[in-house]
Nucleic acid binder design. Sequence first.
DNA 1: TTCCTATTGACAACCGTTGTCAATAGTGAT
DNA 2: ATCACTATTGACAACGGTTGTCAATAGGAA
Lengths: 124, 124
Amino acid sequence: MERRNTRQLEAIRSYAEHSKSHPTAEDVYREIVKTIPDISLRTVYRNLNKLSEEGILRKIQVPNGPDRFDSTLEPHQHILCTECGEFIDVFMNNEERLLEEIKDLCGYEITGIDVVYRGRCPKH
Amino acid sequence: MERRNTRQLEAIRSYAEHSKSHPTAEDVYREIVKTIPDISLRTVYRNLNKLSEEGILRKIQVPNGPDRFDSTLEPHQHILCTECGEFIDVFMNNEERLLEEIKDLCGYEITGIDVVYRGRCPKH
DNA sequence: TTCCTATTGACAACCGTTGTCAATAGTGAT
DNA sequence: ATCACTATTGACAACGGTTGTCAATAGGAA
């Protein structure tokens, strides 16, 4: 399974790798299409998925919203503003006084936390 | 805005409220349709959403999967087995030795944690 | 019973994402 | 350069889960 460096992959990699805004596939597409007008959204999806499988990006599956792609690989969480859609990083250490810490750090008032761990159950 | 007690709402409430299995709307529909054959999936969605807005159920938005409805209102998290789809509760207190705790508690080996807090940003 | 309107069921549409497949374009060998 | 091979692409359609729409139905107070 040979690996090929296409214009499309390179453009997507360099954009997503340097982006700090947690872009969605749509976001990436709207940017890349300016320089590669005939690129397809399908290809953006394919390459973003490939890059996240390779560990170059991290795919963030946002409940009730499009996936976002994150170039920051260090473990951290995210906050989504339910009013304006702003999506920011949170780096936290201890969970105890987390909510107050978050409010101190960035002014967000948390209205919901939905955590879903993923894993393999004892049978697998 | 008067409130009406329909057969459909009552059936959905009593099933979901007593269920311990985090049913999806489909799950609820497949059960209720046995006793109310002409109920529609649309109505199941509507009433599950209504019940979770009223705080009677908790809606869990699972990334890349259908929403689940939880009758356990105490704060807790969930684990989804990526192999068999089993979906279980986790009650945790401190985050520090969380992963080892989880493994001790229920044998799950965590392969991913995607946390998205929701809130209002300082502008709102 | 009557009337009002909340709720329903049928249906279509939505969004984000992936499947399919023939056409295209990297890449390594000649 | 040219070739042949096949990974990748772009088109298009389809998917799954959920919600919008709207005329028909059925609670519930008078």
